[in-house]
């Protein structure tokens, strides 16, 4: 998969489709790129569909009306052909800029309940956060998003790879 910027460069465009990963793929071996990002955000687990008492019972400490925060670690995995010209599945600066715009700017040092529209009516559990971030990053044009994994604490992590 060619990055857009390289397609406009001076090397032979006939090589566009060639991938140095092809022989490996023919042998059933897949290459993926993994990248981790960090952001801090607050959330409160609460749903108006349950009574106050039920919310407290279901969500426990996480139902505290003032919310609480986590240092989230987001791990994403991407696949695609290794571009012969750049040696990359995805250009890291393009990827970083995309994730910065779609996730970090939108969520870092924010209240997920209040500041992220998707969580106005949906409980911002980390399961739901995985799905939301997957939807946002699936649009990355440079490679195929395989899965999203979010570590909420060193003991909790959640993973989503699409439907």
């Amino acid at each position: 998969m060619l990055i857009k910027s390289a397609a406009a460069s001076s090397y032979d465009p006939a090589e566009k489709g060639r991938s140095s990963a092809a022989p490996l793929r023919e042998r059933g071996v897949k290459v993926e790129l993994g990248r981790r990002y960090r952001f801090a955000a607050s959330h409160r687990l609460h749903t108006p569909r349950l009574s106050e008492e039920e919310n407290r019972r279901v969500f426990g400490k996480c139902n505290n009306p003032f919310g609480h925060g986590h240092n989230y670690v987001l791990e994403i995995r991407l696949s695609g052909d290794i571009d012969e010209s750049t040696g990359m599945i995805a250009n890291l600066s393009d990827l970083d800029a995309f994730v910065e715009r779609e996730v970090i700017e939108a969520m870092d040092c924010k209240s997920l309940n209040e500041d992220v529209a998707a969580f106005n009516d949906t409980v911002p559990t980390t399961e739901n956060l995985c799905v939301e971030i997957y939807k946002r990053l699936k649009k990355f044009p440079g490679a195929r998003l395989e899965r999203v994994r979010i570590q909420e604490t060193s003991n909790n992590s959640f993973e989503y790879a699409g439907e």
Binding site: V29, K30, E32, L33, G34, R35, R36
Partner: peptide, 17 residues
């Protein structure tokens, strides 16, 4: 095979499936 270049960047090679 998982190769970490740093704590935040790695590449995986694995058999399909």
């Amino acid at each position: 095979v998982r190769l970490y270049e740093s704590a935040d960047l790695f590449a995986d090679c694995y058999r399909n499936g």
